[in-house]
Write a protein that binds this DNA or RNA. Structure first.
Length: 891
RNA sequence: GGGGGUUUAGCUCAGUUGGUAGAGCGCUGCCUUUGCAAGGCAGAAGUCAGGAGUUCGAGUCUCCUAACCUCCA
């Protein structure tokens, strides 16, 4: 049975039993505690937490999931994977254990011809939580599982929670006995390799308190509603049903693995080392494709870094297997081929994913090249100094600073007959980890602020957003927060965060800035709102300054949005959608929005592109957008299912919200896009859209900035005035300005160069005037002079060097010059080789002089410079220098 | 978020304890040469990432900012 069939049987089974089939959510959900969706229940979290009412009592899904906690284990064991799919059924206060257990049993044991998975009943075992007799009864009496195949386990194994205070509950796991060949008798308690966990049923009924880990917390109460959350690993199920040994050999993963083998000439199953490499490649390549597909770009922090690390492990392993040329593109193609039957969107995104993966491969090859050079230099140094070991510190620097993989260091060292201090390296890595962790602990204090918001949310409920249809709303204050803590009252002059039960204010999200405006009471209290944020889902926090009166919890207020600002922002937001659409028409669907900011009259739009956007494309896109403004298209908002939105061709951004109802903004029939923001009513209201420019904000990402409406007009008007002034000044038509200015700059440059030349020539010509005719003190020819104030210290230095060079090298020559400027005196001394041989260095002369000038300075025997503040000491300094020369000349 | 690193000519990079900003490749011109990533001579090209400070003097030392690379969370 192939993976696609296992998947559709699961969904069909639960759909037939009244479950809403929910498509897999994006791997990137707006959850600050999670890098990626790491369990099937994550998209449903708000329903379990009571943050939002569940739109259906029961649901089923096959959710894509990424876990990167132990990527080191991937490929070495049979069951670790960074990407997998969780099939699950969920009940939100609807059915409970009595139905969840028989459901799972029925699907597992029903015959294949009948739509089930056809497991023999006698091979299945179950575990339950210690005192969960209820579950044992259901397993034994209702399902008919013999008591000797039901085992009790403790909190660590059979009690589920999210690791933080919140819902939790006992669970029951179903195991498949692979037979005595795979291990010893005794059920899952005895051997988890022989007895393979296939399904975990969570009975979510309690509330967990504070405490660490899987066991160190108390249970502080019962949930108001009992929920069901189950998870069946699709890959593990496929491995069993396809009779293969591990999850890398099932139909989907095997396709990628075989392609990797083909590209490198490796044979799977021949030796352990290359098998591990092939499995890592197959697993990681797929994860990369899905991450990029959901909008992650390789980077050096957060999600981007995880992606980069995975990709580099793929490339590194391909090279270990012998690949010489770039292979990322082929691996991505193979992934799309095996996974698209289940995820058709991969086909649509294939080009973009490929492009990003190939670009990152190029970056890594550069990194490797640089690293190899550095390694070779270090290695030859080690050998030339008689060493035999690459120190832990050196290996760490290669890895930490230059991104050079440690295993590659080991390999290259071995080739050159060197050892590597692995213990030292590991210890340095540990230290780095400690630093980062210590820092993370420090920062934890900042997170406590969200508890105040959560409490308000719990008692007051979510803020109802009224801003799509009105800009003035009546509301009640359900919370006041200052510096992360709830306060009772905010007085005049206070900065406070006001939380309302309903609000017309838009809270910053989707790139659209929060609204500004006022919150007032009929008793004359006024607060100016300068920003609106949503720190936890569903809670609108109005950051405000109290201008008059006092605000207290429970107060009835009126909320008024600054409509001029709102309209200017809405116009910018509509413009962003249109620009997005126009870029995709021009550059293809790889030009997907990566981020944006919609401010009053102004917008930023970021999207991936391997190179700068040409002026032609910029002009075409700008022209197209403005053309559509003239069409005066109606801008409409509609709620629909994700399926309908997809059919409509709506552009979808990553990080979409859970639930299957989405809001689609349409500009005429031209641009459709998922969006929760506010918009103009017709495209004509935008007036004008003007691009300010295009630039890079990181590897492979370009940013467009543009102005909209009155701001665009003002910008254009200003520019027009500027151009008129320029044409006026230069007396040429506007279209000849660039050439004219270029010419002017060139001739100016030439003139400056000529001037420099003339000055230099003049200086050379007047060289003798400045330095005088020189004198001989003994055998030493010397020039001692005071330079005119028309030259500066640097010129004096050039002068002296030039003058020195004019002399024949066999005569000892020294020069000493002073220059008074800005109340300070600078001095320069020089000596040729012959003079230095006589023991007369430039530095010596300088030091003799500086003593009289209250100055400091230094240099080398052939040239020295310095200065001081005593301008009256010049004569004395000259005398001292002459005296020194005389002494040396006498020797 | 915390470390480490980089930023100097169009490109790739040197630059010692602070003391005249360099090399190779490329470019321009001339010469030589029948071939090729040819040879010779000459030349142009730099806000030393930006800002502040220390100093007689900063590419070099200190602080701040930015961009990029990289590791860890």
């Amino acid at each position: 049975m192939d993976s696609a069939e296992i998947r559709s049987r699961f969904l069909r089974f639960y759909a037939d039993r009244g479950h809403q089939v929910v498509p897999s959510a994006s791997l990137l959900l707006d959850d600050p505690t999670l890098l990626f969706v790491n369990a099937g229940m994550v998209p449903f979290k708000p329903y379990f937490l009571g943050e939002a009412p569940a739109p259906y009592p029961r649901a089923t899904s096959v959710q894509k999931v990424v876990r990167t906690l132990d990527i080191e284990e991937v490929g070495r064991t049979t069951r670790h994977a960074s990407f997998f799919q969780m099939a699950g059924n969920f009940s939100f206060g609807d059915y409970f254990k009595e139905e969840a257990i028989p459901f799972a049993w029925e699907l597992l044991t029903k015959s294949v011809s009948d739509g089930g998975y056809g497991f023999p009943e006698e091979k299945l075992w179950a575990t339950v939580y210690l005192d969960d007799d209820e579950a044992i009864d259901i397993w034994h009496k209702k399902v008919g599982l013999p008591l000797d195949r039901i085992q009790r386990r403790g909190q660590a194994d059979n009690f589920w929670s999210m690791g933080v205070p919140g819902p939790c509950g006992p669970c029951s796991e179903i195991y498949y006995d692979r037979g005595p060949d795979h291990g010893r008798d005794g059920g899952p308690v005895a051997d988890e390799d022989r007895y393979l966990e296939v399904w975990n049923l969570v009975f979510m009924q309690n509330i967990r308190g504070e405490g660490p880990g899987k066991e160190g917390y108390p249970i502080i109460g019962d949930l108001p509603a009992k929920n069901i959350d189950t998870g069946m690993g699709l890959e593990r199920m496929a491995a069993l049903l396809q009779g293969v040994d591990n999850i890398y050999e099932i139909d989907t993963t095997r396709g990628i693995l075989d392609r990797a083998a083909e590209l490198t000439g490796a044979k799977y199953g021949k030796d352990h080392k290359s098998d591990v490499a092939l499995r890592v490649i197959a697993d990681h390549a797929r994860t990369c494709a899905f991450l990029i597909g959901d909008g992650v770009l390789p980077g050096n922090e957060g999600r981007g870094y995880v992606l980069r690390r995975l990709m580099r492990r793929v490339i590194r392993n391909m090279r270990i297997l012998g690949a010489q040329d770039p292979t990322m593109g082929e691996l991505i193609d193979a992934t799309v081929l095996t996974m698209a039957p289940q995820y058709p969107e991969l086909n649509d995104e294939a080009n973009r994913i490929r492009q990003i993966a190939v670009a990152e491969e190029g970056v890594f090859i550069q990194t490797l090249k640089a690293g190899i050079t550095i390694f070779d230099t270090a290695a030859s140094k080690i050998r030339s100094s008689g060493g035999t070991t690459v120190s832990g510190e050196q290996a760490f620097t290669l890895h930490d600073t230059f991104g050079f993989p440690f295993d590659l260091t080991l390999e290259m060292a071995a080739e050159q007959g060197l050892e590597v201090d692995e213990v030292g390296f590991r210890s340095l890595m540990g230290q780095q980890r400690e630093r980062a962790k210590a820092d993370a602990r420090e920062r934890k204090s900042g997170l406590t602020t969200s508890t105040a918001y959560r409490e308000i949310l719990e008692h007051g409920g979510r803020t109802a957003f009224t801003g799509y249809s009105e800009v003035d709303s009546e509301a009640t204050i359900i919370g006041l927060v200052s510096e992360g803590a709830t306060i009772a009252v905010a007085a005049q002059g206070d900065h406070v965060e006001i939380i309302l039960n309903r609000s017309p204010f838009y809270a910053e999200s989707g790139g659209q800035l929060g609204d500004r405006g006022r919150i007032i009471t009929n008793t004359g209290c006024v607060a100016d709102v300068y920003d609106v944020q949503m720190p936890v889902a569903g809670l609108f926090v109005h950051r405000a300054e109290v201008k008059r009166g006092e605000f207290t919890q429970g107060l009835s207020v009126e909320a008024h949005v600054d409509i001029y600002r709102r309209r200017a922002i809405s116009r910018a937001h509509t413009a962003t959608h249109m620009i997005h659409r126009a870029f995709r028409e021009e550059l293809g669907d790889t030009a997907t929005q990566m981020g944006s900011e919609n401010a009053p009259g102004r917008l930023r739009f970021d999207f991936p592109s391997p190179k700068a956007i040409s002026p032609t494309v910029m002009q075409t896109v700008e022209g197209k957008v403005n053309e559509m403004l003239l069409e005066d298209l109606a801008v409409t908002a509609q709620n629909m299912t994700q399926e309908q939105a997809r059919k409509m061709g709506a552009m979808a951004l990553f990080g979409e919200k859970y639930g299957d109802s989405v809001r689609v903004i349409s500009v005429g029939d031209w641009a459709h896009e998922l969006c929760g923001g506010t918009h103009a009513q017709r495209s004509g209201q935008l007036g004008v859209v003007t691009f300010l420019g295009e630039g890079s904000i990181g590897a492979g990402v370009r940013r467009i900035e543009a102005l909209v409406g009155a701001d665009a007009y003002q910008f254009l008007a200003k520019e027009h005035i500027l151009v008129s002034r320029l044409t006026d000044m230069l007396k040429v038509p506007a279209d000849q300005l660039p050439e004219r200015i270029e010419r002017t700059i060139n001739s100016l440059k030439n003139a400056e160069r000529d001037l420099d030349r003339v000055k230099a020539a003049q200086l050379t010509a007047s060289l003798d005037d400045i330095i005088g005719i020189g004198e001989d003190i003994g055998a030493i020819r010397c020039w001692i002079f005071q330079a005119p104030t028309t030259i500066d210290a640097a010129q004096m230095r050039d002068l002296v060097m030039k003058a020195k060079g004019r002399n024949r090298p066999e005569i000892p020559v020294v020069m000493f010059g002073t220059l008074i400027a800005d109340g300070k005196v600078s001095a320069i001394a020089t000596a040729n080789e012959k003079a230095v041989e006589l023991g007369l260095g430039a530095n010596q002369m300088l030091q003799a002089a500086l003593a009289c000038l209250d100055g400091r300075g230094g240099g080398k025997p052939d040239m020295a410079q310095g200065g001081g503040s005593n301008i009256n000491g010049v004569d004395e300094a000259v005398a001292a220098v002459k005296a020194l020369i005389a002494t040396k000349a006498a020797n």
